[in-house]
Design a protein around this nucleic acid. Structure first.
Lengths: 179, 179
DNA sequence: AAAATAAGGCAGTATTATTGACTTATATGC
DNA sequence: GCATATAAGTCAATAATACTGCCTTATTTT
C-alpha cells in the first residue's frame, strides 16, 4: 500500500483521515453511480432511436423553455455541429419546435412539443425514481450533504446553472448580461 | 408549474418536501458534476492520445492488479471488442502488461507497467484534487451522506464493487464464486 | 472425447463528438 | 448607411466509443 502513496500524499495531507483508499472509493462511486443513473434512460431512448445527446437536449429545452440555440450550447458545452445534428432530428420528428424570437429575429427559440414533453417526462421520471429510491435507502439526512458536494465538484463558473430557481420567466443568458 | 407534475407526483408523494424542482436540481447536479469531474482527466488523456475508455481501463487495472480480461469486462460492462481496441493500444504503447495465469493458462492477467502507473497516478491525482476541494468546500460533514447516496444510486448487484476493501490479495471474481 | 470457457480477431455499423470554413439573416455601433 | 458583430445553420472530413455477429485458438472441465 505504501508504494502507491507518493503522488497523492500531499493532496491527502490536507484532509486528515481522507486516505487514498477512501478517495479512490469516491471516484469509483461516481463512476458506477453515473453509469447506472444514465443507463436507465439510455434504454428508453433506444426505443425512440435516440441517444444520450438527444436526452440532454430534450431535458434542457424542457427545463428552459424558449432557450436560444447558443444558450443551449453554453449549457451543454458541445459544438454547434454536434448539437445541430441532434436538434435537426428532434425537430424533424416533432419533439422540438423552433420559433423565431420576435425581438431579435436572428434567434431561434426552442420549445418541446407535447410529444417532446411526454418523452422528457418519461425519461426524467425514471431518473427521479432512482434518485428517490437512493434518498430513501440512504436516509433523507444524507441529501443535503450529497447536494452540497455535487455542487462543489462543479466548476465554479457553472454552479449558477443549478440552483435557487423557483424563479420567474426564463431569460436568455446573453440578454441577462446586457440588461 | 402545475402542468408539469402529473407524471412525477406519485413519485414525489413518497417523500415529503421532495418536489419536482428539487429532484430536477439533483439530476442537473449529477450531470454537471460528472461532466466536470471527467473533463479534467480527459484533457490529460488527450495529451497521450487516449480517451475516457483508456482511462477506465487503466484505472481498474491499476486498482485490481492481475485482473483477467473477463473480470475487467464485468466491471466496465462494455463488449469485448470495445475493450479489445483500447487494451491493444495500451499494451502496444507499453502502459499495460499481460501475463498468462500460471494456474489457468487461458487467462491473461493485466498489470500496469511503470509508465502505466505514472499515468494512472496523474489522472487519479487530478480527480482526487477536485474531490478533496469539494469536500473542503462543502464541509467534511457532508461526505458520509454523499457517499451513502452515490452508493444507493448504483444497481444493487454492483454495489459490492465499491467498498469495504483494505482487503487482502485480489482474487478473480469467477474464482471467488467457485472457491 | 466432448463441451465449456477465456481470449482474441474480423467486418460492418451507429452515435457522439471534434475542427475548420463558409453562408445567410439580422442587429448594432459609428 | 455602412461596417462589424452576432445567431444560426451548413458542408466536409475525422475520431473515439460503442455495438452486433461470427469465427478461431488454446485450455480447462466434465
Amino acid at each position: 500500500m505504501e508504494h502507491r502513496n507518493h503522488a497523492l500524499c500531499q493532496l491527502t495531507a490536507s484532509l486528515r483521515g481522507q486516505d487514498e483508499e477512501k478517495l479512490r472509493q469516491v471516484l469509483e462511486l461516481l463512476f458506477f453511480a453515473y453509469r447506472d443513473f444514465t443507463g436507465e434512460a439510455d434504454a428508453v431512448l433506444a426505443d425512440f432511436g435516440f441517444g444520450r445527446a438527444h436526452h440532454r437536449a430534450i431535458y434542457f429545452i424542457g427545463r428552459n423553455p424558449n432557450i436560444s440555440v447558443s444558450d443551449l450550447l453554453g449549457i451543454l458545452k458541445i459544438t454547434k455541429q454536434s448539437l445541430s445534428r441532434v436538434l435537426t432530428q428532434l425537430i424533424d420528428e416533432g419533439y422540438v419546435r423552433q420559433e423565431t424570437d420576435s425581438t431579435d429575429r436572428r434567434r431561434r427559440l426552442l420549445l418541446l412539443s407535447d410529444k417532446g414533453v411526454a418523452l422528457e417526462r418519461q425519461l426524467t421520471a425514471r431518473q427521479c425514481r432512482r434518485v428517490i429510491g437512493a434518498f430513501e435507502n440512504a436516509g433523507i439526512d444524507s441529501v443535503s450533504g450529497f447536494r452540497a458536494i455535487l455542487r462543489a465538484i462543479i466548476d465554479p463558473e457553472d454552479r449558477h446553472r443549478v440552483g435557487r430557481r423557483e424563479a420567474g420567466p426564463q431569460v436568455s443568458e446573453t440578454r441577462r448580461l446586457v440588461g
